[in-house]
Design a protein around this nucleic acid. Structure first.
Lengths: 217, 217
DNA sequence: ACCTGAACACCGTTCAAGT
DNA sequence: ACCTGAACACCGTTCAAGT
């Protein structure tokens, strides 16, 4: 009589597979956030014991790396035949959507220091676009990372802010100390889609110019 | 006979102050990384007991928020009288330097969701520059966040990568699957200073154009 | 080969009690 | 007012043992 854990995972046939564990882990994060992910809760959800997970992943960090891979995988797919600016926008949008599609997705991806398959595929596509834009060698690599870093930063900010603290923040600061801030429409900070579209547009515009020779200034 | 903790903090006169705790916490992170920061180790380093910290900070997250403030504070200072592009570069450079100046600084700042004083001051200065560039209303706010997100993303990447995995990564992928990546000088990824200067230049160039009217395309 | 039981050395946080 | 002692309910990880 083998009791399945109280986590309510269905009966398994055969050994646990890494994919099953990763999916269950992402589901736990979706429910309770990254901080709520523990090896014990995860093994419970899978109807097994913690040591069973350590046969598949060296430690918790290795599991999170695999989770990052899974998140990024959803950003892959065939690219439309289009000019480089369009392709960069599509790739950046997909990368963002992949991270936003999973609770704490940006933190999962950003905290993962390994360069695995989906990252490679995305990087290669971005690199191709940058080369078509006119960048070569180091500058193509840097143009690629500029987009990566921006997208990651934006996704992190979006998944971080609650929106509640914004109003109390605007109430907190004195108009004299921060005159520009006080006069600004801070609600625009929460219009994440337009905000991202704007930033991405600025970056592609800069790249368009920069491709004509760096450093330009 | 009151034993001071084995952590070796000097004798205190009067109650513990928040600043002392924040400084000690940042020192612990500097030594062992953010993951090594625990309330118990921290109280030990301060020669006290964990509950003493909870009288100063609601919980560990509140402490990390205060640490983020301290990290960002080092980015403040008088700005040179110069054109907006120079000022944006100086502000972005300082923000970056502040985060890089502390081990795991980007993670500390990026994981902090409160908008406190130093963030406000930085935002106000950036906003002023963006208004001088020609942006108004929402677009000025978005131009500011574009720079913020990029700088945060870059700092995160720099403090994440070890540099060791880069070579094994390039060995891993097949030349056929990722042709552009295989042909690229990936060592450029680790030239973080030039990489940052490049990206920042692309962004300011894009903003210069974008200020002439968004959306431009 | 794959998993369980049990333990080790920790955590964050709280509560009563001391001075 | 400020801190200590002691405990609660957890952690990640390992190791021996089971089948």
């Amino acid at each position: 009589m083998s009791m399945q854990g109280s986590g309510g995972a269905g009966t398994r046939k055969g050994p646990i597979r890494p994919d099953t564990v990763v999916d269950a882990a992402l589901a736990l994060v979706e429910l309770g956030g990254l901080a709520s992910l523990t090896m014990r809760r995860l093994s419970d959800a899978l109807g097994t014991q913690p040591p069973a997970l350590y046969r598949l992943f060296r430690d918790k960090d290795a599991l999170v790396d695999a989770m990052a891979d899974a998140v990024l995988a959803s950003a892959l797919g065939p690219l439309p035949e289009a000019d480089w600016e369009t392709r960069v926008s599509v790739l950046a949008g997909r990368l963002r959507a992949a991270m936003l599609g999973q609770r704490d997705g940006a933190r999962i991806v950003g905290g993962s220091y390994t360069s695995r398959q989906p990252t490679m595929a995305l990087a290669d596509s971005l690199l191709a676009a940058m080369e078509e834009a006119g960048f070569t060698g180091e500058t193509a690599v840097w143009a690629m990372t500029t987009v990566f870093s921006y997208v990651l930063g934006e996704a992190l900010e979006q998944q971080g802010r609650t929106g509640v603290d914004l109003e109390e923040a605007q109430a907190t600061f004195s108009t004299e100390d921060y005159p520009h801030l006080a006069r600004s429409p801070l609600a625009a900070l929460l219009d994440f889609d337009t905000r991202f579209a704007f930033g991405l547009r600025m970056i592609t515009a800069g790249l368009r110019e920069g491709a004509q020779g760096f450093p330009p200034g």
